[in-house]
């Protein structure tokens, strides 16, 4: 047990030597006088994961825009007779997959059904992701839902950056009474379960995208403020901050110019994490019945909706779960790339 670990440590030592070499290279780059953003871009581009993440997000966003247009169905169009149809995709259907047939595990034995063969004119019908219990095209609904979830992701990051980060930094930086008052208020706000605050808000405002946005704005930033405060506490006593202060730098300038770049990476990761939690807040609201109003869809509400058919029509829950998971994976990989590019202490690793 000891040995492999020792090796690990040795590997680490090797890492450290490597570090030094790269540092020199960066100095060179500065001499080339590339702009800050150009450098950044170069560094991000070196990280395969982040490139993958970026491409996936672009692709998903692209599909969210285009998918509902090219599917040939409306997201709320209920086609009588088309209820609960399994996916059928041209070309692939010839290979024996996605040909619209599904196996129902009925209590009296397994039953293979293909609704495309039994409905009138079914030969010409294609539902790439299948249909839901009301006969709506899931391909269209998945991409419509992605739009909403991307919007919520955007709201979450904006709220995190503008409210959470500033709140935490100010609280941590000034400390003392300011910190005390700000932290007590956060505790009161956070101490009340989200569910109560959000439910109340939505019942009072009527369910809708606006109320969900507001609900996330009111409660979503608290986690971020905690992390940014903790980071601030760690850094504000460091030598370079003391140095900046002795040189007469203003508080705002110290916070945003000296400290922020050092903690931004960590905060960015945290804000990437608030994306799933925001999307889940929305999904949770859908679960208790006060999410995005039907027949509109979000990835979260699609999962909640199709969850009820998990043991009967498994294929229904797959597309939203897959898109959501892919979206999260991409955001995480991109976040990693961004951190590596932004954080001066870690860029060489």
């Amino acid at each position: 047990m000891d040995k492999p670990l020792n090796q690990i440590i040795q590997n680490k030592v090797a890492d450290f030597t490597f570090v030094g070499q790269k540092n020199i290279k960066v100095v060179d780059e500065v001499y080339e006088e590339d702009s800050y953003w150009k450098q950044l871009f170069k560094r991000i581009a070196k990280n395969k994961g982040s490139v993958f993440g970026f491409i996936m997000i672009t692709l998903i966003a692209f599909m969210a825009l285009l998918g509902p247009v090219i599917s040939g169905y409306d997201f709320d169009e209920q086609i009588a007779g088309h209820e609960s149809m399994a996916p059928r995709i041209p070309v692939l259907e010839n290979l024996g997959v996605f040909d619209g047939s599904e196996t129902l595990k009925t209590s009296t034995g397994e039953l293979v059904v293909n609704k495309y063969e039994t409905i009138e004119g079914g030969e010409e019908v294609y539902h790439w992701f299948g249909t839901d219990v009301l006969g709506r095209d899931l391909f269209t609904r998945t991409w419509i839902g992605t739009r909403i979830s991307l919007y919520i992701a955007l709201v979450a990051v904006i709220v995190d950056v503008f409210i959470g980060m500033s709140y935490g930094m100010i609280s941590g930086y000034y400390g003392g009474k300011v910190d005390n008052i700000m932290q007590r208020s956060v505790e009161v706000l956070n101490g009340i379960p989200n569910l109560v605050v959000v439910t109340l808000l939505i019942i009072v405002l009527k369910p809708g995208l606006m109320s969900i946005t507001l609900a996330i704005a009111i409660t979503g930033w608290i986690g971020m403020s905690r992390v940014s405060r903790a980071s601030m506490l760690k850094l504000k006593e460091s030598e370079y901050v003391l140095a900046a202060r002795t040189m007469g730098a203003k508080d705002i300038s110290i916070m945003y110019k000296d400290i922020l770049p050092n903690i931004f990476s960590q905060l960015l990761i945290m804000s990437m994490f608030s994306i799933p939690s925001a999307i889940f807040t929305e999904a949770f609201l859908a679960f208790v019945g006060i999410g995005i109003p039907v027949p509109m869809a979000s990835l979260g509400s699609l999962i909640s909706e199709n969850f009820k058919s998990l043991t009967t029509h498994f294929y229904m829950i797959v597309p939203p779960v897959l898109v959501l998971a892919l979206l999260m994976l991409s955001f995480n990989l991109l976040a990693d790339g961004l951190r590596d590019a932004l954080d001066p202490t870690m860029k060489e690793v």
Binding site: K12, F280, L310, L324, A325, V349
Partner: peptide
């Protein structure tokens, strides 16, 4: 962290991404 940028790291990332990406009730069922 110890095997940073290795296959193990990617696997760990993958697991943790799955963990935060799929709602707990899907796991539960």
């Amino acid at each position: 962290a110890l095997k940073h940028n290795s296959l193990l790291d990617s696997m760990a990332t993958f697991f943790s991404v799955i963990g935060v990406s799929i709602p707990s009730y899907v796991f539960a069922l």
